[in-house]
Design a protein around this nucleic acid. Sequence first.
DNA 1: CGCACGGTTGACCTGTATCAAGCCGGGTGG
DNA 2: CCACCCGGCTTGATACAGGTCAACCGTGCG
Lengths: 243, 243
Amino acid sequence: MDMKLKIPYEVSISCSNCKLINKCMPLGLSTFELSRIDSLVSQRIKIKRGNDLQRFSNSHQALYIIRTGYFKTVISTNDGRDQVLGFHMSGDSIGLAGEISNLYSCKVTALEDSTVCIVPFAKVEEVANSVNGLHSHIRHLYSLEINRENSVMLFLGSMNSEERVATFLLKLSASHEERGFSPLVLNLKMSRYDIASYLGLKHETVSRTLAKFIRSKLIYLKLRELKIINLVALNSLATDKQR
Amino acid sequence: MDMKLKIPYEVSISCSNCKLINKCMPLGLSTFELSRIDSLVSQRIKIKRGNDLQRFSNSHQALYIIRTGYFKTVISTNDGRDQVLGFHMSGDSIGLAGEISNLYSCKVTALEDSTVCIVPFAKVEEVANSVNGLHSHIRHLYSLEINRENSVMLFLGSMNSEERVATFLLKLSASHEERGFSPLVLNLKMSRYDIASYLGLKHETVSRTLAKFIRSKLIYLKLRELKIINLVALNSLATDKQR
DNA sequence: CGCACGGTTGACCTGTATCAAGCCGGGTGG
DNA sequence: CCACCCGGCTTGATACAGGTCAACCGTGCG
């Protein structure tokens, strides 16, 4: 069924035999279109845990797509304020905001060893007339990002700490499930500090809230290893604003 | 120099003689390119204060650009949570997120009588090969929006109430200045409730913080009419995180 | 003209931040 | 391989910013 050949580890470096193709490219491409897609990715780079995806030349001239690994994006101001904007895993596009504003810089940091595909927009425009819907797909990627940010603003602007933490766990769970992993077993790649910043809380509050969830048997947690025990209850914590 | 002919009020309905062309379209277009741009806008619609920009057919098939007026975008969940995501005025593009997610709906409400230009993406793709940089300009618009949202997440996640209100006023001021108005005289189109939601505060807190600013002679405020008296101090409140 | 709603202000309360102490685990160097 | 140490994490005690509740005012809309 699923032939497992012994293949040198660099062979699968083309889009057409990448498992993620349905996530980062339009659905339902013909074989001809697939062959054109292969020329989109100018390079694939490896980034070690703790390092930043430093932008090559002009960042908003290219799309960065995570092939493997885990990242956080952080905005920092010159008065020393930091804010984690999001966490990203395989198939996600990052750096869509480009470098427009100089008021604050946006950093993309690997939380584990990762690989990233770089798709220059120039190539997109070259290839677009032979691949149907490529432009609209790029717009779709931007829309996804804006939607993601909207949902972050929602909890930052209107939720208490329990609701925020529950929402965070559910988001993680959903993105795991989306990628074919168990939605109930999460391996946290980020620190409590990262979570706290993302949720607009202090790390102590995150700790306490997680402890409360453990006590009420919603989750199991040992360091960075987390299991969701009561998904339903967690969900109603996040979405049933009582009163 | 600048001929002022008496023209029936609907004539200026083409992009090539719209004052906003430099804001919503790429810079430095040739006259030929300008003529192609004119065909981009499929229609211009009027929206009365208090009404929503209801999306036509499939929203993410078109770009909506504010010609005149003022809008707020609001996200609401089915458990009755509301969050103002932003305020928008002439030249801004709205609705870039499309309708991807059904978890929460995003509403765009006019805060005063407004007009909006609709640019279907299908037209963009038709015209793109005769207008240099049109695709990259669209991407630029998305980037602007993502950047804007990043800055909102920054204050929602990491600022206290004074910093938030000061930041809000400075943002308003900057967008006025950008459009050639005085950066010091602001006419608030939105209610205190809207401001509060946007800033992730309660309206009482917004009121009190504004009152504090009045007392310390940073601003003058009478209902919705606001004057910035000490821009420098306001700025250092927003950006100098002491300690 | 009147009323409802937006806005302000005060008194009080609570959720989250702050400060502080201690624990644990993993990485480093001897 | 072990010991140490540092950074991530937890937990407790306390403080305070901002939320909540309530009363009142003004204004602009119907």
